[in-house]
Design a protein around this nucleic acid. Structure first.
Lengths: 152, 152
DNA sequence: TGACTCATGTCAGGATTCTGACATACATTG
DNA sequence: CAATGTATGTCAGAATCCTGACATGAGTCA
């Protein structure tokens, strides 16, 4: 590590920087989640369910930025492990509302502490103003990027 | 699409927002790169080589945020397609410096136009000051996140 | 010089995710 | 009511990426 390692400064476009930041966040989260036997998508699913009980598989998939097929295999695993429950019959339509079990809630609690520490570290050295600025800027990027997607 | 779709606003932590923005950027890039038969990693590799000729496989992997194994299979494909060349013998050590062929450079040119349009769209509606603010903030996040990683 | 450490390229195996496809359920529209 | 469009859950196959491992080359230090 004493040699220049990457040296890839590029001219650092904002797109590249965004990818770099996202990658760094993912790595950091995997690091603290691994001792808990949990992946990032795994955590995201639980967190989503805690904040929005009754979300369907497809909604969870969109919220975790994976396909509904991937989320489905994860949900099946979580059901088998007793962290999540889904009714056998859909109350309306085909969507099966998923909910956390007490066991799932306990798993999430430990994970939340770990993830919170990562986020705190990420925000370290940023003022309140900078944080709200980052908030607005990221939302602006998302909005602008999606504008052209559904227009196709 | 007329119904509320996801509804997952969460309380939108900055971490979630970062992941969301990165996902949106990836989707948008895949969309414009697909007609050119190119993936995001594929493009990243070419762009890296254009800006830093002679980068090794491992350096390219770090720059594109994938493992060196993944980058290696990509490089083998690109070599077979004649977009990239690597010497048979390492001039020093084991690192094989990769370079773009004229063919690879032409592929990159078309891709760059496409990617640039995505980035321009992403930056639309942001002032110069906001862009440089985003720059500083993202770099701050990356720096803070990496601080604890190598300390393990 | 010899032992140690680090980085690299590469091979093999496994895990994860995605693409494609199908049947079902509801809303909309004629 | 019937037809269409949209959304959902799920199955199967393929593609992608990663983890683990090994041998080689270079630098460091006793």
């Amino acid at each position: 590590m004493s040699q220049k390692a990457v040296g890839v400064d590029l001219d650092k476009s904002l797109g590249y920087l965004l990818k770099e930041a996202s990658s760094a966040l993912r790595v950091a989260m995997e690091e603290v989640l691994r001792p808990l036997g949990m992946s990032v998508t795994h955590y995201a699913c639980l967190e989503l369910l805690a904040q929005r009980p009754g979300l369907s598989n497809s909604e969870l998939a969109r919220g975790a930025f994976v396909t509904r097929q991937s989320m489905n295999v994860l949900l099946q695993t979580l059901e088998r492990e007793g962290q999540v429950t889904r009714p056998a019959e859909a109350p309306v339509g085909k969507a099966l509302p998923a909910r956390l079990t007490p066991h799932g809630r306990r798993s999430l609690e430990k994970a939340t502490v770990a993830v919170r520490s990562v986020e705190d570290r990420m925000l370290a050295g940023m003022t309140e103003a900078e944080q709200s600025g980052a908030f607005r800027i990221l939302e602006s990027m998302i909005h602008s990027l999606r504008k052209g997607d559904d227009g196709a």
